[in-house]
């Protein structure tokens, strides 16, 4: 049984902030994927996934994060996570994803750090 999950999309000067709140699992992942298909990202934009309200994330949730990253890369946009919990950070570490995702304490921090040219966002070259 999946719990409560909400996704909100916010446009900011540097691009888009996608905020996930509640429980992200196999039951709610389709809603997250659905929100992602409606995004219009331009090259040089930044996609920030804000996890400040996220209470639970299982392997389906990780798939969502990886897909969001792939989406941004495909559009030539940058990608960052904001407000990663300690537990999720540990999971990302085991999964070898800490090098892939730039992380910031808040979505604002992520936006502030964004510079389209010569960005260091993506660890993968």
């Amino acid at each position: 049984m999946s719990g409560v999950f909400a996704v909100t999309t916010r446009t900011v000067p540097t691009g888009t902030v996608l905020a996930f709140a509640g429980e992200l699992d196999s039951g709610t992942a389709p809603a997250a994927h659905g929100a992602m298909t409606k995004l219009s990202l331009n090259a040089g934009d930044q996609l920030v996934v804000d996890l400040a309200g996220l209470e639970f994330c299982d392997s389906s949730g990780i798939t969502v994060l990886v897909s969001a990253h792939n989406l941004a890369r495909g559009a030539g946009a940058g990608f960052a996570l904001a407000a990663v919990s300690r537990q999720l950070g540990r999971t990302l570490d085991i999964l070898g994803l800490t090098g892939l995702f730039a992380t910031y304490p808040t979505a604002d921090d992520a936006s502030a750090a964004w510079s389209p040219a010569g960005s260091r966002e993506d660890g993968v070259v």
């Binding site: 990780i62 798939t63 990886v66 990253h69 792939n70 999964l95 070898g96 994803l97 800490t98 090098g99 892939l100 993968v124």
Partner: peptide, 9 residues
């Protein structure tokens, strides 16, 4: 270290 999950990227 840094061995990534397989199939995602």
């Amino acid at each position: 270290p840094r061995g990534m999950l397989v199939g995602g990227v």
